[in-house]
Design a protein around this nucleic acid. Structure first.
Lengths: 348, 348
DNA sequence: TTGAAAGCGCTACCAA
DNA sequence: TTGGTAGCGCTTTCAA
């Protein structure tokens, strides 16, 4: 149905090998022959069958990416950057969402193994490292994104989560908050790192978390976290003493938290300052523009894409590499108590 | 490196064919043999090489999706739904962003052709239909998403854009707006359809657009449209007579427009009502919650996924099919002038 | 119920 | 500079 090398070879009275060499810009081909072949290829809009090529070369020029939720701007951004970063090197990218379901994710990864992608990239929802041992057994290079696992020496690209927690918390303290609370995320490395950073920042200011000032986001079914943030903030509002600042695990939970605070008749940031994490695109347009820690999703995507290309080109295994992106605080109204040092991502 | 059918066959003293049949659940295989083979496959975590299979069967169980911008929640949602909808049928999905660049999109489509995906899905940024003629020449089934082209009889799944424009405009009129303006999008079917619906709705109320009340979004470099919306709204604010309602091509442009209106010291919706299109997730959390026309991205994704699976299963070409999703208005504060008929996508 | 042979479209290797 | 041969891992067909 589609045109094959053989068709062009027959038409031009050449061998398949010769045409194949022209295709791959092999040097030892006569100028005249090359021209004839190229012209015919263009006329027929010939597209080489990459599956056939893969079978011979053992490389598919294909990468696989699994994220928890493609709708989440953080992961969408990473996916987009990885795609465009690797496309220029000739790769195509399989993308899928796991919906935070470890089994679904595992199934997707098996698919990618069967497809013999050159590298697997995954922002993982696994609870154990079994899945990665499986990948390693198949000698498939892989890169963890955003979330890592204890005891697993793997390639990793993500933000420095302790720095995230530290920056956010210190910022609130510097804005005059004396009782900074934390709405923490689930039992994954990102949430744990931010929690750690939060505690360390408090400690370095001679403080520690007050009782009831660390609340967990509700877990399942609401991974975007608005509802969880709302509920968590309600708990914080009834804590004694009441916090005067909240560092939220992510932006959606911060949105929920802000709503709860406003519903309770308090003012933001005067009575309660809020900072989230993710720096999502519409922060500036919110009822109260949301301060947030930027996780550098673009940089993460860029690093991950480059690393993937590098891994795909390597014959032998090398020591896994971890790249930590440095976060930065973007101050907006929700935490801005002092008039100075504004840095809103403003329009105009 | 990876395990092959042959390895398992040799180990078990069977032929490759037998093992292959077990793999594909072929009926005429002895119960005992089947059990032995399956057990060994599981032990070795055998993953069949799908590239090799494709070469024989001519099907890759692979789909390709190209969208203008994966970061845009509308397209991210569609991508996610298509992925999960088709995954259960055994398909993997290549996803890429064209950044609204026709050449980049064309290049991506050529890649997909070379990969022999079973179906191409594209929310296209093309200006002409050449690209689709090329796809047709290769006998590749394809589905247009969201945007269609005049004179091209192709499979299409998208929202009914005239209905979008009609619903939005009628809603503003019913809320008491007498001079409804429109911030229109670029020269693609979606923008043209919405513009048409806007005019028709005005006409059916015995009105027509006043001079200067249709303004174009600035084009390039800002396809998310906030800045364009801001500029466009500024023009509308200085129109005489001034509009008292704006139907914006999409939500980002509506955000920009609202900012311009507030900057000018006007109140929303009292002085100027605003409605967008897209119903993006965070509408409820905005300074002024944004009314919007929901485009039914989930339904679009579902239809497109199902259609793709159907096309992949068909041997012969059939008449292209167009599926139009019916939009619905989601009323929030930005257009709510009468106290009744609220239908916010509210929390709690 | 099992398996031998042929071949999918391409590339690697070596000979002419 | 050109091309014949072999083979990538799998499925299809048909014979045993």
């Amino acid at each position: 149905m589609a045109i094959r090398l053989k068709d062009i070879a027959n038409e031009l009275g050449l061998s398949v090998v010769t045409v194949s060499k022209v295709l791959r810009e092999h040097p030892d081909i006569g100028a005249e022959t090359r021209k004839r072949v190229l012209r015919r290829m263009r006329e027929l809009n010939y597209q080489p069958n990459l599956a056939a090529r893969s079978l011979v070369t053992g490389r598919t020029w294909t990468l696989g990416l699994v994220v928890p939720d493609l709708l989440h701007p953080f992961f969408a951004d990473i996916a987009k950057v990885i795609s465009s970063e690797t496309r220029s090197h000739g790769y195509s990218l399989f993308i899928s969402s796991s919906d935070e379901d470890p089994d679904l994710e595992m199934q997707e990864i098996k698919h990618l193994l069967a497809r013999r992608v050159d590298v697997i990239l995954v922002a993982s929802a696994q609870r154990s490292v079994d899945c990665f041992r499986m990948i390693e057994e198949q000698n498939m290079p892989y890169i963890l994104i955003d979330r890592r696992f204890q005891g697993l020496d793997a390639n990793f690209v993500g933000v420095d989560d302790e720095a995230v927690g530290g920056l956010a918390t210190s910022h609130l303290i510097e804005q005059g908050c004396h009782r900074v609370a934390h709405i923490r995320g689930p039992e994954v490395s990102t949430a744990l790192g931010r929690l750690m950073g939060y505690k360390q920042a408090l400690a370095s200011h001679g403080l520690k978390p007050l009782p009831g000032h660390i609340v967990s986001l509700g877990a399942s079914g609401d991974h975007r976290g608005e509802k969880g943030g709302y509920e968590a903030a309600k708990k914080l509002l009834s804590a004694k003493p009441r916090p005067d600042g909240i560092f939220c695990f992510n932006d959606p939970s911060a949105l929920g938290a802000m709503r709860a605070i406003l519903d309770a008749g308090l003012r933001i940031p005067r009575d309660m300052a809020v900072i989230g994490c993710g720096n999502f695109s519409y922060s500036d347009f919110l009822r109260i523009p949301l301060s947030s820690v930027d996780q550098g999703s673009e940089l993460i995507g860029k690093f991950a894409g480059d690393l993937a290309v590098a891994l795909a080109n390597r014959k032998s295994k090398v020591k896994p590499k971890a790249e930590l992106v440095t976060p930065r605080v973007v101050v907006r109204a929700s935490s801005q108590r002092t008039p100075i040092s504004a840095e809103p991502d403003s329009l105009s």
